[in-house]
């Protein structure tokens, strides 16, 4: 349900950039780590609903989910964390530190030609 809050923040970020560029945005790419617990479809739906009658109406939202990484405490290797295989793929040690999740980022915006 927090997708509605996030959609609002995404809308504000894109609108601010559009104002700066003085152009209409037609697509935007955002990314976030999987542990942000954001449902992609819900976010798209929420964005579509709140962007009506704004400069972002009909904007195509492209979403990239990034895996979470972990660092082995024994061999110090960094690896993509897999819930079903929670061991270091290199040395098989099971004590590791989850690294911070990738933040919610507005990566790029595609603008209509003026």
């Amino acid at each position: 349900m927090h997708e509605a809050t996030i959609a609002q923040s995404v809308l504000e970020a894109i609108s601010a950039e559009a104002k700066k560029q003085k152009a209409r945005p037609i697509a935007a790419k955002i990314s976030y780590g999987v542990f942000n617990a954001i449902n992609t479809e819900t976010l798209k739906f929420a964005f579509e609903a709140i962007s009506k009658d704004t400069v972002c109406e009909n904007l195509k939202l492209n979403i990239e989910q990034k895996p979470i990484k972990a660092k082995c405490k024994k061999c110090r290797a960094t690896f993509e964390f897999d819930l079903h295989e929670s061991k270091c793929p290199k040395c098989r040690h099971d004590d590791f530190e989850l690294l911070p999740d990738a933040p919610l980022l507005l990566e790029e915006i595609t603008f209509e030609d003026k």
Binding site: L104, T110, D113
Partner: peptide, 16 residues
């Protein structure tokens, strides 16, 4: 069409 790289944190207000 032109692409503009933004690379901005969306939840920056909350993070601040």
């Amino acid at each position: 069409m032109r692409k503009v790289k933004v690379r901005k944190k969306i939840l920056i207000a909350n993070e601040e």
